[in-house]
Amino acid sequence: MEFDRILFYVENAKVSRDWFVSHLGFKSIAGSSNSHTSTESVSSGNVCFVLSSPLTPASPAASWLKFHPPGIADVGFRVKNIELAVARAAAAGAQILEPIQKNLTAAGCFKLAKIAGWGDLSHTLVEPIEENLALPASGKLSLFTLIDHVVLNVESGDLSSAVSWYQKILGFTPQQNFDIKTENSALRSQVMMHAEGGAQFPINEPASTNSQIQEFLSANRGSGIQHMALQTANIVGVVTDLRSRGLPFLPVPLTYYSELQQRQNYLPADWRAIAESQVLADWQEDAPAAMLLQIFTQPIFDEPTFFFEIIERRVSLVNGKQVQAGGFGAGNFRALFEAIEREQMKRGSLIDD
């Protein structure tokens, strides 16, 4: 199972399309509308976003936006056998929102079905029947290659239930878990991964009433997708490009890099560029060159809800075999947590627990 198209409900699909093109370097690939909804699609590499906004109160986007600020309403997954995936989900108790149907687009022919996810989230399951590989290429290299992971925030006390739900319904399995606590706040996280395709789906819950996870839940008015990681092969170059486009990132203090240098024996040739770009870095003990590099944007909408992560998983040669940085570095996770805490302080939303 891999990530497929991601659906955002937004206030104005065309305005959001232009933002993704200008700030994230995506390409506009399609636009349409019906009697109640305007829809635009944008892509970069193997990443595809669908942006929908309401034209009338009858739009599903209008219903969703009554309860939530703009954000992700549906996370799509590509499956090998949609009949089997839907049957297993239904047998495990999933609500089938849309039965299996065929959909013919310029990109090819697909089988689609939709199930209810956690909270107001839904999941579209996609099985390609015949993809159109002859679509013309623009000749311009994409900034991103694929969706690395998508992160769900749930209410306090719901983490174990959400983990169990994604295990039973979609076949995810628990991997790393994190308990992050500072002097100010705390969270708990469980990383989920799918054995067939490797889709990664971490789930967070607040572990203190003033946690940044709780701030998201309050602003989002319920559980939802907090952020998505877009993978790239050149994070320093991509971040330079995105900054030139006006995309704001979470700042990282210089002490972060001086402390890393004191702890690490290995530093890559482009270490200075990494530090100047304010990219977070983590190393694998058995393969130090297989670095995990990450940086996080400011929230992209008006409220402190959804943001993007840019990630590069470097490869190292160990005993004649290539090893790619995997998982989620604990040091980077804590650094992200502390960076968002600093933004909470600026907003005045981090108060004593």
Rank of each mutant, 00 (worst) to 15 (best):
V42C: 10
Q214T: 01
Q190C: 13
S185R: 02
I203F: 11
V15L: 07
A199K: 02
G348S: 00
N265S: 06
G25E: 09
N46K: 08
A339W: 03
N319D: 15
A287W: 12
E303L: 13
P136N: 04
D270M: 04
L143G: 02
H194Y: 06
T124F: 08
F178E: 00
P69L: 07
G45F: 07
G93Q: 06
W64K: 03
L350S: 02
T240C: 09
H227F: 12
G320A: 10
K80C: 10
R88G: 15
V239I: 15
W165G: 05
M345Y: 07
G348L: 09
V15T: 13
P54H: 00
Y166I: 13
E338G: 09
Q231R: 13
T297E: 01
L125Y: 10
I96T: 13
A325K: 04
A330D: 00
V163T: 14
V323P: 01
L254M: 06
A325C: 00
N234S: 13
A287E: 05
M345Q: 15
E276W: 02
A269T: 12
V191D: 01
Q101E: 08
E312N: 11
Y256C: 06
Q261G: 15
F328N: 03
S258P: 02
G25I: 11
N220T: 03
F296P: 12
R263Q: 12
P70K: 07
H227A: 02
E155P: 04
A186I: 13
R221L: 02
G326N: 10
I96C: 06
L104Q: 14
Y257E: 06
A137G: 02
C109I: 15
R272V: 11
R5S: 08
T209R: 01
N46Y: 02
A91Q: 13
I100C: 09
A61K: 01
L230I: 07
T105G: 03
I180R: 02
A62H: 15
A61F: 02
A233W: 04
K168M: 08
K80W: 05
A92L: 08
Q175A: 14
S122M: 11
E98K: 10
Q176V: 09
A134G: 01
Y257R: 04
F49C: 04
L260T: 05
R314P: 00
A30Y: 01
S244W: 04
K321I: 09
E215N: 00
A113T: 03
A116W: 05
P99M: 09
V10F: 12
D18S: 13
V252G: 07
G157S: 07
